[in-house]
C-alpha cells in the first residue's frame, strides 16, 4: 500500500477488467447484430424509422421524456410487463440495433412506450401533449409550448415505436 505504482496498477486493472469484460465483450457479442426475419423469407425487422420519426426522436430527447418513460418490456418472471400488456413479447437486443441512441430508460413515472405504436386503446397523442387535463391524462404535463411541426414529428416517432414483429430471439426467450 506504500508504492504508488502498485496502487495505480491495481486501480487500472479494477477499471480495465470490467470495461473489457462487460463492454468490449458485449460489443463483440452484439456488435454484429443486424435486422433479421422472424420467419424464413419474411420481411426484415426492426423496420427503419421514417424521416419524420427521426425528427421526432430528437424532440423526444430534447424534452427529456426519457426521465419518465422507459422503452423496454421485461420477460415473464421479471415484473408484470407482459401481463399488463406493455408488449406481446419481451424486448430483445435486436429491437434496438437501428437506434442511434438507445433510450431504454430506468424510471416509469409514466407508462412504457416500447409498443406505443402498437397499442389499440390510447389517448389521442395530440390532446395528451397540448391539453392533457381535458383528455383524461391529468398526470401528464402539458407540452403546448412545442410548435406544431415538432409535435407532429414527436407523434410520428411515438407511433413508430413497436416491438410486435416476430423475432428469432423472442421465440427463444418465450
Amino acid at each position: 500500500m506504500k508504492n504508488l505504482n502498485t496502487l495505480l496498477a491495481g486501480v487500472f486493472a479494477a477499471v480495465a477488467l470490467p470495461f473489457g469484460a462487460l463492454l468490449l465483450s458485449g460489443q463483440s457479442q452484439l456488435g454484429g447484430l443486424g435486422r433479421a426475419a422472424g420467419e424464413e423469407g419474411g420481411a426484415l425487422f426492426p423496420s427503419r424509422e421514417p424521416g419524420l420519426a427521426i425528427q421526432g426522436r430528437s424532440v423526444y430527447l430534447s424534452l427529456g421524456c426519457v426521465s419518465c418513460h422507459t422503452q423496454q418490456v421485461r420477460p415473464a418472471g421479471q415484473g408484470s410487463d407482459l401481463a399488463r400488456g406493455l408488449g406481446v413479447r419481451p424486448s430483445v437486443a435486436r429491437d434496438y440495433v437501428l437506434q442511434p441512441q438507445v433510450l431504454l430508460g430506468d424510471r416509469r413515472i409514466g407508462p412504457d412506450l416500447a409498443n406505443y405504436g402498437a397499442r389499440k386503446t390510447q389517448i389521442e397523442p395530440e390532446a395528451l401533449l397540448t391539453d392533457p387535463a381535458s383528455s383524461g391524462a391529468v398526470w401528464h404535463p402539458s407540452y403546448r409550448f412545442v410548435d406544431a411541426g415538432s409535435r407532429t414529428a414527436l407523434i410520428a416517432y411515438l407511433k413508430s415505436l413497436r416491438q410486435d414483429y416476430p423475432s428469432p430471439e423472442a421465440k427463444l426467450k418465450k
Binding site: 447484430l33 437486443a93 440495433v97 441512441q101 438507445v102
Partner: peptide, 25 residues
C-alpha cells in the same frame, strides 16, 4: 486515477463512437 479513465472511455463508447444498440446501455 480511476475517474479520468472511466470518463473518457464512457464518452468514447456512448457519445463519440457509440457502441452498437443496447451495449450503449
Amino acid at each position: 486515477f480511476a475517474f479520468p479513465l472511466v470518463y473518457l472511455l464512457a464518452q468514447l463508447m456512448v457519445l463519440w463512437v457509440p457502441a452498437s444498440g443496447v451495449v450503449q446501455a
